[in-house]
Nucleic acid binder design. Structure first.
Lengths: 243, 243
DNA sequence: CGTCGGGTTGATAACTTTCAAATTTCGTGG
DNA sequence: CCACGAAATTTGAAAGTTATCAACCCGACG
């Protein structure tokens, strides 16, 4: 796979126009392909000298465990996403990363990443931009948990996942395959699994979305967008900002 | 004020060892000093070509308004913090920024910032690092809203603010001045103002913290840390990662 | 087959909001 | 320095949302 075709390169290219040297630097980051089985943590909070990863296939979730044993999922990552940047920049991982299903990813060693930033500094700016997009998603998630009720929040997550999957060619406006269990949804939404179940049934009964058998089917996009107060601006790409 | 003494330069210096050229580049970012009165938005969601700011004195909050009119405060910023990075990188502001009290800040024009990244690229890496620290705070906030109850959440916020203020010399382990109203706390914690009031009284009755008359007084730090499950790792500085 | 991890549903309990009203604080003009 | 009005804090009671507990069902899989 060349950088030209990697979803990660395409993502960065939306922010800085990449030179040949920059693209081959990105290419080199893709050399250590690895496979991770579902359910076993790829990164564990507190680990030091952790690598970062570029996700090629599969889904993962980033989460934290609280002292009481409950957990909060901060975000899901899908193909093309960059994982564990903070773990590298801080030398020690501040969250866990668990594959939801089997995952293929390119391992990026901490030193390789920092060296890449030194040698091709515009890539640092590009990664800064990509990281900011991720932060925008976390912010939107925070807003949802803080001020949206369970139904709005659930609808919002389903819409966001759909929009993100569509960007990488894995979904459409009418639906997408989704490997998340109701427990995972609950931990992401700050709800109990039981309540997620009820909310999903409500959304189904309302004729808005169906999420069953690993498939999300959006029946009334407009109504769903309105219910969730979903504004996909925060996911949109613009043209390159740096020439 | 020289970069050497600016809290922002000190912060970045914790991540990359800054050269003379880099410090004077930072210095130049500090040239446009401005003052903003309390309560009037400095940045409004949707505005384009927005500047960023480096906060010199005062407190601000970053927030979003939902369609129903409710708002969620994503974070508070205190002196030394960088504001509105995403607004610059995305060309359009994705959140509002409002001074909680009168604020002095250096305006950083979008082009100046991007130019600085081009000319002194290690600063881009340093800003990436600083932005990642901010994201870590947002993540911790998200976790709290998702999985901590009102009392734990409130305790956590009071502890975090204290720890951050201490880093810039504006607070101690025993307390700090805090200009936030219970309404602002409520919008940050995802609670109603009425409930915040009750929670604060509980914390006071338990002999843990007092927040009255703009002053937070921590009476039993250990008990408070335990209640909130507060781990300040995510705020800690390490030595420079880039030589 | 039997087990086990989801998913589903009902009943009850816990937490938080909302509404309403009283009280205090604080800035400002007299 | 005091009076006044606006804003913030405080408290009680009732309503609403979500969690918890307890079953039961179902399909995958060894």
């Amino acid at each position: 796979m060349t950088a030209l075709h990697s979803p990660f390169a395409r993502k960065l290219g939306a922010f800085v126009a990449l030179s040949g040297a920059e693209m081959s630097a990105l290419d080199r980051l893709h050399s250590r392909r690895k496979v991770f089985p579902a359910g076993r943590d790829m990164v564990h909070e507190g680990q030091i000298n952790q690598s970062a990863y570029i996700l090629a296939s599969g889904w993962v979730c980033s989460y934290k465990i609280l002292s009481g044993g409950t957990r909060q999922i901060v975000d899901f990552q899908i193909p093309g996403d960059f994982l564990g940047l903070r773990s590298v920049l801080f030398r020690t991982a501040d969250h866990n990363i668990e594959p939801v299903i089997k995952v293929e990813a390119s391992e990026v060693l901490a030193n390789d990443l920092l060296e890449t930033f030194s040698n091709t500094p515009r890539l640092a700016t590009a990664v800064l931009w990509a990281a900011s997009r991720d932060e925008a998603m976390v912010v939107e998630h925070l807003v949802g948990i803080g001020r949206r009720d369970a139904k709005e929040r659930t609808a919002h997550l389903l819409l966001e996942l759909g929009a993100r999957l569509k960007l990488v060619g894995l979904g459409s406006t009418s639906g997408y395959g989704c490997p998340l269990s109701q427990y995972l949804l609950a931990d992401a939404l700050g709800l109990s699994a039981v309540h997620v179940n009820r909310v999903l049934r409500e959304l189904r009964d309302d004729g808005l979305v169906t999420f069953q058998h690993g498939q999300v089917e959006i029946h009334d996009l407009n109504a769903l967008v309105q219910l969730a107060d979903f504004d996909k601006t925060y996911l949109d790409h613009d043209g390159p900002l740096l020439k």
